[in-house]
Amino acid sequence: MENKELIHAALQASGAVKKGFALKLGIIGGAIFVVLLMLMGMMAPGGGASTAGCTDTGAGTDDASPVSSSSGQSTGSVRKEQVANAKIIDGVAAQLGLPGRATLIALMAAMQESGIRNLHYGDRDSVGLFQQRPSADWGTRAQILEPKFAAESFFKGRGTNEGLIHIKNWQTRPPGDVAADIEKPDERYRGLYAGHEPEIRGIAKEAGINLDRKGTATGTTGTTGKTDGGATQASTRGQCDAQDTKGTGGGKFSDGKQTWTLNNPRSVAEAIAWAKSHAGSNSTGSWYARCLAFTAIVYGWSFSGVNYAIDHYNVVPKDMRHDGDRHPPPGALMYWDTGHRAGHIAVYLGGGKIASNDILRSGYIDVVDADLIETKWGAKYVGWTPPHFPKAG
């Protein structure tokens, strides 16, 4: 539309044609101003309600509105925070023996979920870099807000949640698809993760991250582990730690007859049934160095609230501890000193059997004779307690 036509249309809309001359002059001036604004709008790039230049990502995409899918680049303090967090995420990946592609996937997920910022808010109870939820078994709020803890959870999984290393063929699939498989957004938003790859590569370059670093699909086990109640501990295997070292053991275990009344989400019978149904061929491979998490989850808790297995023995009141007693009642928690910081814990199923992670297969739960912890790992049996979780949630 020509400028004159725009002015005439504006005049007609204002009714200036029918009014006095003095009034016309005032209205004409106002109309010209309006037209100038319209012309400026036509010349402005982008424009409209899409706000294509906005890159402030939202707090997660799990049933929430999607974040901006634009490729605008953050600047200033936000960019510094993104680079700093990217280095932390990559450091965890490298420590776990994962390749640079794992870092790429994690950063794409974090960009979509939080803008690679350690947010203290989100959809429902989601927080942190990956918008993980305490109520969904990703750890406590404080734990999730620890970047190393959150990154390790993303890579290795936590509680009942699978991590990157559990995604089949993750190394060869499109990185955005893998990120979405872990984050599990609403189907409408799955495609948004892939759009962040160009910017992530720029951030990685700025942070000095080698996205072509070599590694394995599951990382190098034994270099670092997950904890149920704290951040990554590079010097241990996690909340429980042991290695094959032949030992003599202290003999077989038999059932005691003690009973108790505790406020666990699951009863003893329900907990034993749950443990058995999630062992052997039904076990997932997500339990590496996570004996304390498993025992808490067996009894229906999301987490134990304690960093290490052996520490849980001392968290339980003294009058509930049965030092060295080899007659635990079914459902009891059994403890071993493995010679490492974390120790080991398992649920006693009765009949001399326990449900334990890592004893036959790394990362898996199996039902075995309780004395195998001593004879295979060379661990020292400490004792047993009722299934009391004073810090669980």
Rank of each mutant, 00 (worst) to 15 (best):
K4V: 15
H8M: 15
A9V: 06
L11C: 06
A13C: 01
V17D: 15
G26C: 09
G26P: 02
M43G: 10
P45H: 13
G53N: 15
T57D: 06
A59W: 04
A64G: 07
G72K: 13
G72W: 15
S74G: 09
S77K: 07
R79A: 07
E81F: 01
A93K: 02
Q95M: 09
L98M: 10
G100I: 00
S114L: 01
I116L: 03
I116N: 00
L119D: 06
G122A: 05
Q131G: 04
R133E: 15
S135I: 06
W138A: 13
T140G: 09
Q143I: 08
E152K: 04
F154R: 06
K156F: 12
G157I: 02
R158C: 08
G159D: 11
L164C: 07
D177F: 00
A179Q: 05
A180C: 00
A180I: 01
E183I: 10
G195M: 06
G202H: 04
L211C: 08
G215H: 01
G219Q: 14
T223Y: 06
K226P: 10
G230F: 13
A234H: 10
T236L: 03
G238R: 05
A242S: 13
D244V: 10
G256A: 12
Q258S: 12
T259R: 12
W260N: 10
N264T: 13
R266P: 03
R266F: 10
S267N: 04
I272F: 01
A275Q: 06
S281Y: 10
G285Y: 09
S286H: 14
Y299D: 12
S302E: 15
V306P: 00
R321Q: 11
G324A: 07
P330S: 06
P330L: 11
G331T: 02
M334A: 10
H340R: 06
I354Q: 09
A370Y: 03
A370R: 04
D371K: 05
I373W: 11
K376C: 06
W377K: 01
W377P: 00
G378P: 00
A379L: 00
Y381E: 07
G383T: 03
P387C: 11
